[in-house]
Simulated assay, not measured.
Amino acid sequence: MTRSLTGAVLGSVIALAAVTTAAKADGEVNIYSLRQPFLIEPLLEAFTAKTGIKTNVVFAKEGVVERMKAEGVNSPADVILTVDIGRLNDAVEAGVVQAVESPVLAANVPASFRDPEGRWFALTQRARLIYASKDRVKPGEITSYEELADPKWAGRICTRSGKHDYNIALLAGMIAHHGEAKAEAWLAGLKANLARKPQGNDRAQVKAIKEGECDLALGNNYYYGAMLANPEQKAWADAVNPVFPTIGGTKGTHVNVSGIAMSKSAPNRDNALKLMEFLSGDEAQEIYATANFEYPVNPHVKWSPVVESWGRFTPDDLPLSAIAELRSTAVKMVDRVGYDG
């Protein structure tokens, strides 16, 4: 049975003590997770049912890498589960994860979705969409990220903070494809078109479209599915069309990932590897697809019927490592433009 030990802060004394007690134990694996418990519990329950290995989870919104670095070789963590290529890269740069060689992972996770040296592996894809008002934006009226800077959309766009990981990753992709000067001009144009100061989360932008505050918004695809499934938010989702924009008209839609890495200290290394392989396999990938409305990285696993109904798209083929390398450049650009001001 999966035991989920949660806390708003990873340094919670109770949660940390519980995991430390079980640091090295036959038939257990310790997880530090930035993914919310309700998103991963079905996966971990399936893993335990299949392998008999128990999972101990500490959940936190931030501070995971810092905690692991402070704990050093005494860290009880076997794996880290997180979202965004930037956070995976942070773990690599902090030296808290180790390389993994696994024929199973190599077969399940395409090369473009894993670190060349095996230090992290993506588990799901999430597309960065444009949500467009059904009432005020004609189908096909916007098809690319670049068009968000067109003056025709002045006062009609809502976004969350420019410094949020999801927007930083998109901006890094724009920098990679267009160079710094053009990407900065695009960001300044997008800022000029905002209907309000950046605020809230991705769902809040769709709500703002429903309420007539803006006509376009940026948001990850799985939020659309989550809103459709939520009786209190379904009206928000029903007010928009999801658009899979391209970069430059030729490159595909920007995608980010959720992923996993093995801790450098990993007291239960064999069990950790079994978990990593399971999460990349068909059963877990299907759970990700149906329960979380995400796109599997495993090419052998079909999209969920709900997600499939939104339409097919071609992901941008820019290596995720290139996005990770340009994150700091993107953050500085957001500051120069004063995007959140």
Results as ranks from 00 to 15, higher is better:
residue 138 K to I: 00
residue 207 K to V: 03
residue 295 Y to R: 13
residue 199 Q to L: 09
residue 270 D to I: 01
residue 95 G to Q: 00
residue 318 L to G: 00
residue 38 F to H: 13
residue 92 V to A: 02
residue 123 L to H: 05
residue 154 A to Q: 10
residue 136 R to Q: 12
residue 310 W to V: 01
residue 195 A to S: 13
residue 136 R to N: 14
residue 314 T to C: 00
residue 211 E to F: 06
residue 150 D to P: 04
residue 163 K to Q: 15
residue 310 W to F: 15
residue 103 P to A: 10
residue 309 S to F: 10
residue 50 K to S: 12
residue 122 A to C: 08
residue 203 R to A: 15
residue 324 A to C: 02
residue 20 T to M: 11
residue 86 G to H: 07
residue 181 A to P: 03
residue 297 V to M: 02
residue 308 E to H: 10
residue 306 V to Y: 14
residue 25 A to P: 00
residue 47 F to V: 08
residue 317 D to G: 00
residue 70 A to V: 11
residue 190 L to F: 10
residue 132 A to I: 06
residue 212 G to F: 07
residue 197 K to R: 10
residue 328 S to Y: 11
residue 48 T to E: 14
residue 69 K to Q: 14
residue 312 R to I: 05
residue 26 D to T: 12
residue 88 L to D: 08
residue 154 A to H: 05
residue 237 A to N: 10
residue 291 A to N: 14
residue 197 K to I: 01
residue 280 S to I: 00
residue 196 R to F: 10
residue 167 N to Y: 03
residue 9 V to T: 11
residue 166 Y to E: 13
residue 111 A to R: 12
residue 149 A to C: 01
residue 108 N to M: 05
residue 301 V to I: 06
residue 138 K to R: 11
residue 181 A to Y: 00
residue 243 V to F: 04
residue 59 F to K: 10
residue 183 A to V: 09
residue 92 V to F: 03
residue 168 I to N: 03
residue 99 A to E: 08
residue 1 M to V: 04
residue 210 K to D: 12
residue 108 N to G: 04
residue 82 T to H: 07
residue 56 N to W: 07
residue 13 V to D: 12
residue 194 L to F: 08
residue 167 N to F: 03
residue 84 D to F: 15
residue 330 A to N: 09
residue 149 A to D: 02
residue 214 C to R: 05
residue 315 P to D: 05
residue 253 T to P: 11
residue 153 W to G: 07
residue 19 V to T: 13
residue 307 V to M: 12
residue 8 A to D: 13
residue 39 L to K: 12
residue 279 L to I: 02
residue 315 P to W: 03
residue 279 L to A: 02
residue 73 V to C: 00
residue 74 N to W: 01
residue 289 A to Y: 04
residue 36 Q to C: 08
residue 166 Y to R: 04
residue 143 T to Y: 02
residue 340 D to E: 04
residue 264 K to T: 04
residue 261 A to W: 01
residue 198 P to W: 01
residue 97 V to Y: 03
residue 139 P to A: 11
residue 325 E to A: 15
residue 240 V to F: 09
residue 229 A to E: 14
residue 55 T to M: 02
residue 304 S to L: 03
